[in-house]
Design a protein around this nucleic acid. Structure first.
Lengths: 360, 360
DNA sequence: CTGAAAGCGCTAACAA
DNA sequence: TTGTTAGCGCTTTCAG
């Protein structure tokens, strides 16, 4: 086995407590004592057993971040931001993915590494309010993502309806009239409130246009292939939209690929808007207009909220917090061909951080 | 504090051991005893404290995977594969990123979460052989990535030189003569063996072409913006390559973006080849020809190797293992416009799994 | 400023 | 089949 405090103490001829003091940088240790102990530590190659420390202290300094799919750049980018935000508070992040399976989402939020992770940030897809309400685990949980829950947990999400409406408004402003929505869900379970779809509907109505259900295409997943397939399906059944608003960037990118393959011009024939602002969207042959949630704000808010609860500094009511977002106009809707990654960072619009009626 | 075994035992009126037996599904427990205990567990909402279990057992079931940047889809995709592979062995993965900083790479491989992670899979960039040799930490380490080390650790990496040569050969076979390399490093430290660059050089020479150093462009990082900048720099200094081989897909994608912005046609004017086969490469307006390492094989091999050492089943010599790869020809080099994601999965070529001279 | 001892919650001998 | 008990390595009172 490894070298323990006891071994070091023996070697240095001091008590275990003294070694502990040195290891933990306890201030009141005489320099010569410190030196002596340090030497023993070095000689033996001692490294503290964090597991034991965790057991003793009742916390580990590890938080988990669970996403549907790491292969989706949005979540990968978000994970990176969360790792950084957590590091600022001396927390390490354990990233897991649920593969978009309800079962795994349940597992993660119920009994995942109990007592090993201090808290959890979860971006669910299939979880229902009831699942959350039935949650046994007592460690703090912060929810991310598009869905809203009536459960007593903090939720960090941009105003999806407003953002979707802004995207659609942009298309309408461009003179588009037949605007399709790609990425509605096909779950057999009751269709959850789809905020982005609702935004599409509301804005069309507000603009005096009819939200034609024939222009709504469901997808199985949220990837490029799903977007490509959805676009094909739409075209194949004879629909000719003049614009497409996709649930996310990947679906939008897949759809664009299909359009190009079929010889349709973007944005001339069909304009495309996505959602997420993954880096890829800035660099495609045709850069993508998209709703850009402020990922760093989301990460920071989620981690801050979690850490606050962890530190017992806050037992306030759970809140819904809305970080900022902005619509980034690029070539796929006729936006200027600005060099990607340059000259377009006005900063996201300020989010609404004010308390909202607690979800439960 | 939480509910412990003792609490449950008390409640059920049995000993602590009996509860432990139930929790661990120890077979020899009478059904009625099991039921009684289970009831107490449910009533109290008991969940085992894994930290205590870890301390007792000396292992945690957690392995770490450290990559330079999660924002790079290659690493995100690989992380997903590793999480899945680890789950098969009942291991959980803690993903961390080093932000491409040498300091963080050192930290991760030296004292990262000591005794909390059972082992580490690391994809380094800046680490030197000497760093590895000086490593104190005794937990198993498996290395991934392009660099080769003379250190006593398992290394999983495709044959980068051969793969690069195959990519260049493909371009030469297309009649290209002025083939640029994008993504050489600009580190102030001594330039490490750059296998892909070496492959470029070797293949050009073998083809009777001269590897013109003016066609090699260094980049600061490995992202799309770096690729775009490198391509711009090359064109700005008046070079007119007829093909580009990039260190990775992101650089290739960025370069393509620049070419399109400047009105150059891909592949007609300039053909482009990348490396990594990230999903994005299949779905761009112009799909990207690329070297596709077998990510799932890499993940599986890395995890298997680590788990083997963890279980003490193997204290064999560290090995270099080369998983398979394949060159996927797509539109950026004039490949047929096959629908993305379809009809092109002959499976990677078999890798060389035979033992090679141990790295140390 | 340093030492002795208790105990975090669990597992695994060993006993009964 | 179930109970008792001794630690895993650490932090933390409480004395000295």
């Amino acid at each position: 086995m490894g070298v323990s405090l006891k071994d070091v103490a023996q070697r240095a001829g001091v008590s275990i407590k003294t070694v502990s003091n040195v290891v933990n940088n306890y201030p009141h240790v005489t320099p010569q004592m410190r030196a002596k102990v340090q030497q023993a530590i070095d000689e033996l190659g001692y490294r503290p057993n964090l597991t034991a420390r965790h057991l003793r202290k009742g916390r580990t300094g590890i938080i988990a971040f669970a996403v549907p799919e790491l292969g989706n750049p949005y979540f990968a980018e978000l994970a990176g931001a969360i790792i950084d935000a957590a590091a600022q508070h001396d927390y390490t992040v354990l990233v897991d993915h649920t593969a978009g399976l309800r079962e795994r989402e349940l597992l993660v939020c119920q009994e995942f590494r109990s007592h090993v992770i201090d808290g959890l940030i979860l971006s669910p897809i299939h979880l229902e309010t009831a699942d959350l309400v039935a949650r046994q685990e007592t460690s703090p949980l912060v929810l991310l993502g598009e869905r809203e829950y009536e459960a007593p947990y903090d939720q960090i999400a941009i105003d999806n309806v407003a953002a979707a409406r802004e995207a659609v408004r942009h298309l309408v402003g461009l003179g588009r009239r037949r605007i399709a929505f790609l990425g509605s869900r096909t779950d057999r379970e009751r269709q959850p409130a789809h905020l982005r779809l609702r935004g599409w509907r509301e804005e069309l109505v507000a603009s005096g246009l009819e939200p034609a259900e024939t222009l709504v295409v469901a997808t199985d997943g949220y990837g490029r292939a799903d977007g490509a397939a959805a676009m094909s399906a739409l075209l194949d059944r004879g629909e000719r939209p003049d614009a497409v608003f996709a649930y996310n960037d990947l679906i939008a990118l897949g759809a664009m690929r299909t359009l190009i393959e079929r010889g349709l011009r973007v944005p001339d024939d069909i304009a495309v808007v996505g959602f997420d602002d993954i880096e890829e969207s800035r660099f495609g042959a045709i850069s993508l207009t998209t709703v850009a949630p402020d990922k760093h704000a989301i990460a920071r808010l989620a981690v801050d909220r979690l850490v606050e609860r962890l530190s017992g500094r806050s037992d306030s009511e759970p809140r819904r917090i809305s970080p900022g977002y902005e619509l980034v106009v690029r070539e796929s809707t006729g936006g200027g061909r600005t060099a990607p990654g340059h000259g377009r960072d006005p900063g996201p619009r300020p989010g609404d951080d004010s308390p909202t009626p607690p979800p439960a």
